[in-house]
Design a protein around this nucleic acid. Structure first.
Length: 712
RNA sequence: GCCCGAGUGGCGGAAUGGCAGACGCGACGGACUCAAAAUCCGUUGUCUGAAAGGGCGUGCGGGUUCGACUCCCGCCUCGGGCACCA
């Protein structure tokens, strides 16, 4: 069961059964071995910076050093990003779960330590990670040796140190780390300054410069002059550079065999087993000694056995000791299998865990390339054609992947890892699965809650004078992502029935930029339906259903409108700005409507490119018009229209005239007007003459063919 | 707490240093109709004015510039992510 399926009361959210933590033997994927490549290759991807950042944070690479402190119970290893502050390490803190705690704890401290570990165990992860909490901890009574100072320093345990990160133990440098400072203050542990902060630090903290940390209100984190930082053969004193100090300490640690430079990651290995029925079975069998073997290729794939009862094994609700049993463990005839794995025929036992959903989503895009291939998941040539690198250094991968941000660190990291493994094994030519990523926004909608706080079906809520009612009772309106829980879903099927798929697509694309979250408003859909109907009527006679498209040339202004539209739509399409592409098509169609109202038909030179431009946005109606237009080449294989640059310019242009940067009037001018002509034209304008009132402008700013501004 | 993103008419939005509000919805008016729907044509930021026109206006406060929704500094609000990571 996933963490989020457990309620605050420690029960399952479905069925309300008690939930117990249990250690289980499971499969994991060694994604941490790819941490560096997953991090570094982000730079080579065309992805939104925000998603790259989330992955960088998730991988969480820190560089620093491992340092070993000796103690009565053996060496205690810590990881630190600031080995340069080692001289200021005045105590150590271990996670309550650290394996050495038992051996370290002195008899006099044992009961206090046990009590603290018990209470830490009871806290759930959320409570433990809330940093508003006061720091708590207990002394183990033991000490360790600071390798650079040789001093004995106390060892404490505290729950702010997490067993899951680094080594589960830290060296505490209270003068240089805010958490350690807080802890030292709370338990009266020594604080020694090892850097002299700059004067500004003291003045911003409103104290006089001092090395006496008792007077400091907080730790100093940053670059300062090192003090109190020397032993027989290592001295940082007087130095300022943090990076120099770090490398100096690191080499000292290595020479003295008590540490070395190191890198750690926040990223953990990927737990890959699930205890349910629906999922790919592992191609793994065990012998009588529980040794795992992979199932030979010719027996793949291992398929799920047919089952009528998928329920997990029911245990007594208060049974905390019996091991859980996945559904597959009950299928006794599937479970046992006779194989010859080179040792003669023997009976093996199948793995009963299954893979998580991610297993499929990690490579489905590869299978889509070659879905009917029964020999391989994808033919090598097919893969190279669709996903291969475009040039030297290019990662390869699908050209464009559109998806929601919710996949930022799970699906998108797992599939990158998976793909890199396939690359390393020589199965694909691309290093990354998705070269360009685009995050579309969420469709949002109003939701309504009744007096009990329950959501009510949004489509049955009625508005009266700005208030909202459901079945006569007042409800309050809120706003959020469309979803089942808020009962504010509009399904595409309803839209298809009422408006058709083309209108639905067009509406979705027209409401705003693709990457922005935007509201759904069913009332607005009719605008796109009207547009399509108007376009249809411009090309097809409603009475006879016959095309009324003529071979007459289009008037020059309409032709210009067409080419401006083509030019704009091409650019918008390339940049995924479907909303503005649609606006431009509507503008063209509106101009066309005026022409059709007067002339009674649409010029073919307009009808054909208009239909083509509509095709990516509303393919069904475009296809039907295309057939009526009788073009031989299918619309899909016809090259997208190209604007004629000559038709993008008109003979006269309108130039705004500003006085002191404020718009005062506009001038009609020839399209090729020179700056001098423009100045003369503007100075002759009645409004400009009135505004100048005989004065000479201090400055005249002219943006050629765009604007003129008189500065008085 | 830290890191991203966003704030523009009644609503969704357009304009990335040069005419703020394209396009759509809604609203209002007109044509057609016995009538209504549909359709077509027009108006629609706001204040002021009979009008012509003028003032104000892109979350708030400063700045840069001939000129700022757009760039810079400081803040506010909302949304998202991470969160004792040593």
């Amino acid at each position: 069961m996933a963490n989020e399926e457990v309620t605050a009361e420690g029960r399952s959210d479905i069925g309300n059964y008690p939930v117990f933590k249990r250690n289980m033997r499971q499969w994991t994927m060694r994604i941490t071995a790819y941490a560096d490549r997953l991090l570094d290759d982000l730079d080579r991807l065309d992805w939104p910076e925000s998603i790259k950042l989330m992955q960088r944070n998730w991988i969480g690479r820190s560089t620093g050093a491992r340092v070993r402190f000796s103690s009565a119970a053996g060496e205690i290893e810590v990881f630190t990003t600031r080995p340069d502050t080692l001289f200021g390490a005045t105590f150590m803190v271990l996670s309550p779960e650290h394996p050495l705690v038992d051996a370290l704890t002195t008899n006099s401290q044992r009961s206090a330590v046990e009590k603290y570990r018990e209470s830490a165990r009871k806290l759930n992860d959320n409570e433990r990670q809330n940093d508003d909490r006061k720091k708590t901890g207990v002394d183990t009574g033991a000490t360790a040796t600071n390798p650079v100072t040789g001093e004995q320093i106390p060892i404490w345990i505290a729950d702010y140190v997490l067993m899951g990160y680094g080594t589960g133990a830290i060296m505490a440098v209270p003068s240089g780390d805010e958490r350690d400072f807080e802890f030292a203050r709370a338990y009266n542990l020594p604080i020694v300054a090892i850097q002299m902060p700059p004067d500004e630090w003291f003045s911003s903290n409103k104290i006089a410069p001092t090395t006496d940390c008792k007077l400091w209100p907080t730790a100093f984190v940053g670059e300062g002059t090192y003090i109190n930082s020397s032993n027989k053969n290592l001295s940082l004193d007087g130095k300022r550079s943090m990076s120099d100090a770090i490398s100096q300490v690191n080499s000292w640690l290595e020479n003295n065999k008590c540490g070395e430079s190191a890198i750690t990651y926040k990223l953990r290995n990927w737990l890959f087993s699930r205890q349910r029925y629906w999922g790919e079975p592992f191609p793994i069998v065990y012998d009588e000694n529980d040794m795992p073997y992979s199932v030979p290729d010719e027996l793949l794939p291992v398929k799920l056995p047919e089952l009528t009862d998928f329920k997990p094994q029911a245990l007594d609700p208060n049974d905390e000791t019996t091991d859980p049993m996945p559904p597959l463990a009950r299928v006794t005839d599937w479970l046992k299998v006779e194989l010859d794995l080179g040792d003669g025929k023997k009976t093996y036992r199948r793995e009963v865990n299954v893979m998580p959903q991610w297993a499929g989503s990690c490579w489905y895009e590869l299978r889509y390339l070659d879905p009917t291939n029964i020999d391989r998941f994808v033919d090598a040539q097919v893969e190279r054609y669709w996903m291969g690198p475009k040039s030297a250094g290019h990662t390869g991968g699908v050209d464009l992947y559109v998806g929601g941000v919710e996949h930022a660190v799970l699906h998108l990291l797992y599939s990158r890892f998976w793909h890199k493994v396939l690359f390393d094994l020589g199965h694909v030519s691309s290093e990354e699965p998705f070269h360009k990523l685009f995050n579309q926004g969420y469709i949002q909608a109003y939701a309504y809650r009744d007096s009990r706080g329950q959501t009510v079906p949004a489509n049955e809520v009625v508005e009266q004078n700005g208030n909202y009612f459901y079945e006569g009772e007042p409800v309050v309106r809120e706003y959020g992502k469309m979803g089942k829980s808020l009962k504010n879903i509009v399904t595409p099927d309803e839209m298809y029935d009422e408006f058709g798929a083309d209108t639905f697509r067009l509406y979705e694309m027209s409401t705003g930029p693709l990457d922005a979250s935007r509201p759904w408003n069913t009332r607005d859909v009719v605008g796109m339906q009207r547009f399509l109907q108007r376009t249809w009527r411009n090309l097809v006679d409603e009475e006879t259903n016959e095309l009324h498209v003529s071979d007459e040339p289009a008037p020059i202004e309409l032709r210009r409108a067409l080419h401006r539209c083509i030019d704009g739509v091409r650019q918008d399409m390339e940049n995924l700005r479907f909303n503005t592409a649609i606006s431009k098509l509507i503008e063209l169609n509106n101009a066309l409507t005026v022409h059709v109202n007067a002339a009674g038909s649409t010029p073919r030179e307009i009808a054909v490119p208009l239909t083509q431009m509509l095709s990516p946005l509303c393919p069904h109606i475009a296809e039907e018009l295309w057939q009526k237009l009788g073009v031989q080449t299918p619309i899909t294989y016809t090259a997208f229209p190209v604007a004629d640059p000559k038709l993008l310019l008109s003979e006269t242009i309108e130039i705004p005239v500003q006085i002191n940067g404020k718009l005062r009037t506009r001038l009609a001018a020839p399209a090729d007007i020179s700056d001098d002509e423009l100045r003369a034209l503007a100075l002759a304008d009645a409004k400009v003459i009135a505004a100048l009132a005989g004065a000479t402008p201090a400055k005249i700013v002219i943006v050629p063919k765009r604007l003129i501004n008189f500065v008085l």
